[in-house]
Design a protein around this nucleic acid. Sequence first.
DNA 1: CGAGGTCTTGAACATATGTTCAAGCTCGGC
DNA 2: GCCGAGCTTGAACATATGTTCAAGACCTCG
Lengths: 189, 189
Amino acid sequence: MNPGEQVDRQSRILDAVLELLSRHGISGVNMRAVAREAGVALGLVNYYYADKPSLIRAVLNRIGESDMRLVTPDPEAHPDEQLREALRRVAGPEILTTPYLSLRLHLWALAQADEDFAVINAEAFDQYLDGLATLIGNAKPELSREACKQRADDIVVVQNGMWLTSLLGIDKAAIQRSIARTEQIAFAD
Amino acid sequence: MNPGEQVDRQSRILDAVLELLSRHGISGVNMRAVAREAGVALGLVNYYYADKPSLIRAVLNRIGESDMRLVTPDPEAHPDEQLREALRRVAGPEILTTPYLSLRLHLWALAQADEDFAVINAEAFDQYLDGLATLIGNAKPELSREACKQRADDIVVVQNGMWLTSLLGIDKAAIQRSIARTEQIAFAD
DNA sequence: CGAGGTCTTGAACATATGTTCAAGCTCGGC
DNA sequence: GCCGAGCTTGAACATATGTTCAAGACCTCG
């Protein structure tokens, strides 16, 4: 067994779903394609995940976890810096790549088409908003919780716009200006 | 034949695709479902549209046309009012409804998954940006074309964010504040 | 009426996809 | 060695979906 590469096939299956979802959307995710991409036999996918909805659910939950890390601050840093850091991370190189954004888009579309997935998605979104509001509260203790949530709402509108518009291929400079706009909203007096 | 209702079956087929796409995403759009939704026989869909990609293309082109109407101004109004009107229209009741936004989202996802559709989509997006930049130029003649395009870019980021975030169920007030933000960008000195 | 074109239908076919399952494989413990 | 539990495989089945097509309905013009 190749060390460090031929690992855990269950997790390779989830990776395969992410890859296919990002590249071809939900219609490109079928059990055979997943198996091929993961390099396992068809039956193994159904061994770990009873059916296709279970498989998709598992993927959604995994993504929700990694999203939360975006607003999980470095505890060493100053609150101001934590917030600024978080606001920049969403336009960082790992996030602002086509594969990741494409994945996000397909996830949103999926949530729109399926009630169960919508619930998972909405929950993750709320947690993200909450995390962001907390960061703002730490950086600007004089603001009420309500005011923090309001700013978080406003920021998320711009952030989602940045993500979506990046995919449509807008000028990179517009993205930089939009990041500045989020900081302006967050730190306004 | 029922007057004013049993019209043009070819156009009813396109309507059916829009409806299905909005509600169930691209995986919900199959020839049988389209025929059922349109109230025609299966064969008729393939009679008007040679194959599925042709059908989707026809739908995309139809949507592109209706998008352009968003930035096509009322020629009677003052340039300032034309621009303000356009900025408000994108958050108007016809646009900011779940069915329309859901449709938009699925279209973006579709473009992301398929190269051909991406081209149609990118073209429509460019035309929209161009139309918006022109409106800005009319309202603020002192700005260079470059400056107008830059503002259009910034505005579209926020607009796309409004659309997307509306779907995720954010507070309506955040949308209103975001509209104000787009006007602020457009009319800044 | 009747010929000819267009429109409309649903059965039929080929292929794709989700799911099941019997069989084989692997590996640790006895 | 060999037993058993978990892991892995691919064939097989049922259903779904895109496409084709022969047949019929409808409508216009002569």
